[in-house]
Amino acid sequence: MLAESTTIDARRHGELLAPAIERVLRDADVTLRDLTAIVAGTGPGPYTGLRVGLMTATALAATAAIPAFGVCTLDALAYATKTPGPFLVATDARRKEVFWARYGDRETRLDGPRVDRPHDLPADLPVVGAGGLLYADVIGPGRVEGPEHPSAAALAALAAGRLATLTDEEAAAIARVPEGRVDSVEKARELGVLGPPRPIYLRRPDAQVPGAPKRVTA
């Protein structure tokens, strides 16, 4: 790990992210041109933050003609935990629900991600992440494990590890990106190593198809 920056402020991703990237590049003493790939969390999580992260990753990667990838945010939490498998990862989904997934070990997701009420989580397994901490009274305090929040460093380490499993030929196929294209994401997905930089939307937009116009006269 060369550099990392973390700020927890769910409302200000749009303002904090770009300066943080500049700072991290400076701290690591690298330029964008030195990077092989950019990875961003795909959630599940609050949509506005995810979109800021994924849009930033995609646009930045396009300017440097390198691929942008998405990694499930719960996978980054699983990767960072010291809890041996099997376990669950759960994060706050608001509306009294959690986003969760089930893991065999820190690199193997077996089920999910899904969104459910905390008491619907499978019983008995340890729960990694803020979702467990938040609903410790429901799931039982003894099951709660760290870390609480996903880190960008875990995301990058996980992605680097997966990219490293590629053969030279596969890696070359991914790395060959014409200017401004991110086709390589599809190639990586084909190979099953990393996903596209798109949010995981587990909920539909809140919108209703209107009926007949409301009468204005009684």
Binding site: E22, L32, A57, T58, L60, T63, A64
Partner: peptide
């Protein structure tokens, strides 16, 4: 977010 990334990149 896109504009910042394009400008920075």
């Amino acid at each position: 977010a896109a504009a910042k990334a394009y400008a920075m990149g």
